[in-house]
Simulated assay, not measured.
Amino acid sequence: MDTGTALVIAVPAAVLGAAGFGLASAAQQRATKEVAVTPTLSPRLIVELLARPMWLLGLVATVVALALQIVALAFGPLAVVQPVLVTGVAFAAVFSAILQGRHPDPLILLGALCCTAGLSAFLLLARPTVGPAHDQFDLLAALPLTVFLTVLVIGCLAYAAAVQHSSRVLALALATGVLYGVTAGLTKIITSQLRVGLDEPFRHPVLYVVCVIGPIGFLLSQNTFQQGQLVAPAVAVITSVDPVVGVLIGAGWLGEQIDSSPALLAGECLAALVLIGSIALITARGTWLLHHRLDAPQPALIPLSRAGRPIAG
Rank of each mutant, 00 (worst) to 15 (best):
A10Q: 08
F75E: 15
T129G: 07
D135S: 09
V151F: 13
C156W: 02
A10T: 07
V94Q: 02
A36N: 02
V196Q: 08
G58Y: 02
V130F: 04
R285K: 05
F91Y: 05
T239F: 12
F95H: 02
M54G: 12
Y208S: 08
L157A: 10
S42R: 03
V37Q: 03
A280N: 06
L294A: 09
R168Q: 03
G118H: 10
G76V: 14
P106G: 05
L50H: 09
E48C: 00
G118M: 11
A61N: 08
L220T: 01
R285Y: 04
L125W: 05
V182T: 12
R306D: 12
C114I: 12
F122D: 04
L273T: 06
A307V: 10
G267L: 08
G20I: 12
W55K: 02
S25V: 01
L254P: 03
A272S: 10
A184G: 07
Q229H: 10
P43Q: 03
T3I: 15
L123R: 05
T176V: 00
V47E: 00
F137L: 07
I238H: 04
S120V: 14
I46Q: 01
S278R: 04
A92C: 01
I189G: 00
G255Y: 03
P83I: 05
V64M: 09
L16Q: 09
V8T: 13
I213F: 10
L123G: 11
C269R: 14
R44M: 02
F75G: 13
I249N: 02
C156T: 03
A266T: 14
T150P: 02
V212L: 12
G252E: 01
L290E: 07
H204Q: 14
V84Y: 00
I302L: 05
L66H: 14
A251N: 05
S25D: 06
S240N: 06
V182I: 15
L124Q: 11
V64C: 06
P128C: 10
L265N: 03
L219Q: 01
L219W: 03
A121V: 13
H165Y: 11
V63E: 09
R285G: 02
G246A: 12
G20A: 10
P104G: 06
V63T: 13
V63P: 05
E200I: 11
A307L: 14
L270Q: 01
S120K: 08
L57N: 05
I282W: 03
L113Y: 06
I9S: 09
T5H: 14
R102H: 11
S192Q: 10
A97T: 04
Q226N: 01
S261K: 10
A162P: 06
L140M: 09
Q164V: 15
E48G: 09
V147S: 02
L99T: 00
L265C: 03
G313Q: 10
P297D: 06
